[in-house]
């Protein structure tokens, strides 16, 4: 019995999310009185691997094999199953991002392991293993029992605090037999978004909607975001109209994000919009309609005209920053 965490890297480095997974797994393993190992696939420097050790993982298994250099859910599921079997893992933890969403279901079938997706709470009980998962676009939790011997959890971003817990790390080769693990799909072209803070990584997100009236009014939104080291986002009609790029569209049919702070400016707060942002720790709304449903989801709000409030907010922030 042990806990295995799959920690993805991005061009050789880990993100905060990877450390959140470790923090979560270490805490859970403690409760289960068992050990944790992290699995890292791809070329990652020793120094970067040690970063994971800061959060309490003592063993890191690595695989740098050529066959696994292309992310392919089919071959990765086979590779991770080998490691999980060898480790006798009873719990496999990964991120609830594109990668985890692609891998977890394949692993589930391969290992006949029940999956809980988008986990944001510690389990209610360990035996039987009962855990809450998000359902109905954030409108309810399903308290779900995972009765299988092996269980898979995908963890929602920003749900678990980082806990420093430095440990001495040993790095071992994961010993994956890659024969027959050549991906059948061929990558033709890769486009990377490297210059900009990714919306899914941002701690602070400044998002605006149709209440901004025209795309020319986005100046203070961008300024606010840059003052806060945050990313910009928007509601669906705004991206549909071409006022903002599609990458910024949040909601049920766009990106699902869970930043620390989400500013919703001139956004009514339709259920489909909230479905993508309700995991945010703090929602701050600015809207001239005091009945707008966004205020039901917000902790702080200002009822008023955004075009008048924003410049003053920007000034106040500048002052606060220089103070």
């Amino acid at each position: 019995m042990s806990v295995l965490v799959y920690t993805e890297n991005w061009d050789g480095s880990f993100k905060k999310l990877s450390c959140e997974l470790i923090s979560f797994a270490v805490k859970l393993a403690e409760e289960m009185q068992t050990d944790v190992a992290a699995l890292s696939i791809g070329n990652v420097e020793a120094e970067e691997l040690e970063k994971l050790g800061q959060y309490g993982v003592k063993r890191i298994l690595t695989a740098q094999n050529g066959e696994l250099s292309q992310f392919d859910p089919q071959t990765y599921a086979k590779a991770i199953t080998q490691v999980a079997d060898k480790e006798q893992a009873s719990l496999i933890v990964m991120a609830d991002n594109n990668t985890g969403k692609a891998l977890a279901p394949r692993l589930s079938v391969r290992m006949k392991a029940a999956v809980a997706s988008g986990v944001s709470h510690m389990p209610d009980t360990l035996s039987p293993f009962v855990i809450k998962t998000k359902t109905f676009s954030g409108n309810a939790f399903a308290v779900t029992e995972l009765p299988t011997d092996v269980k898979i959890l995908t963890i929602a971003q920003n749900s678990f605090d980082l806990k420093k817990n430095p440990a001495e790390v040993t790095v071992e080769d994961a010993g994956i037999d890659t024969s027959g693990l050549r991906p059948k799909a061929a990558v033709k072209e890769v486009e990377k978004q490297t210059d900009k803070l990714l919306l899914t990584d941002a701690e602070i997100v400044v998002s605006a909607g149709r209440g901004m009236k025209t795309p020319e009014n986005w100046g203070p939104i961008e300024e606010l975001a840059s003052l806060l080291n945050g990313a910009t986002a928007c509601s669906r009609p705004v991206s549909d109209e071409g006022w903002r790029p599609h990458e910024e569209h949040t909601g049920q049919t766009g990106k699902i994000i869970a930043p620390n702070v989400y500013f919703a400016i001139g956004i009514s707060g339709a259920t489909q919009h909230l479905a993508g942002v309700s995991g945010s720790k703090y929602i701050i709304a600015i809207n001239n309609d005091k009945e707008a449903p966004i205020f039901d989801a917000a902790q702080y709000g200002i009822v008023g005209d955004a075009s008048r409030i924003l410049p003053r907010l920007v000034d106040a922030l500048k002052k606060a920053k220089s103070a």
């Binding site: 409108n139 309810a140 995972l146 309700s278 205020f295 702080y300 200002i302 606060a320």
Partner: peptide
């Protein structure tokens, strides 16, 4: 492979704290 035991409503968010639109500086403060 899984069994839903019950559904739980999400934790209600605390009521929104309103800031005076004439004093947006207070939001930064908060």
């Amino acid at each position: 492979l899984t069994r839903v035991k019950e559904f739980e409503p999400p934790q209600p968010r605390p009521a929104c704290k309103f800031v005076d639109p004439e004093n947006p500086e207070q939001l930064v403060e908060l």
